[in-house]
């Protein structure tokens, strides 16, 4: 049963990872004031400092890191991107 469900498990993991890596509302409300998420930093550059260039640079780094992580995860589990959410 597990080998058969493996691609599904892998793509589920990737999906959940991306959802939580990109979340902004939950860390802002539930996180403590001492913990700062990457998305919160982006939000502050964009909304509070009004420095869009820095904000988009940070957002690009987030995108890049997530892409690298997902490609490694997909390689390790031997799943293709097109298998996700099939």
């Amino acid at each position: 049963m597990l080998p058969h469900a493996k691609p599904g498990i892998a793509s589920g993991c990737v999906m959940v990872f991306m959802l939580s890596a990109g979340s902004l509302l939950v860390p802002s409300i539930l996180g403590s004031t001492t913990s700062q998420w990457f998305t919160q930093t982006i939000d502050q550059w964009f909304k509070d400092a009004l420095d869009w260039n820095t904000a988009s640079a940070y957002a690009f780094i987030l995108l890049l890191l997530c892409t690298i992580f997902v490609s490694i995860a997909l390689k390790v589990f031997k799943v293709k991107l097109s298998d996700i959410a099939k």
Binding site: T39, I42, W52, A59, L62, L63, C66, L81
Partner: peptide, 16 residues
């Protein structure tokens, strides 16, 4: 599919 995976923050900033 990759648009589902991309963090919403990135989509928001790029659209804007």
């Amino acid at each position: 599919i990759s648009t589902i995976l991309i963090p919403g923050v990135v989509i928001g900033i790029s659209t804007m």
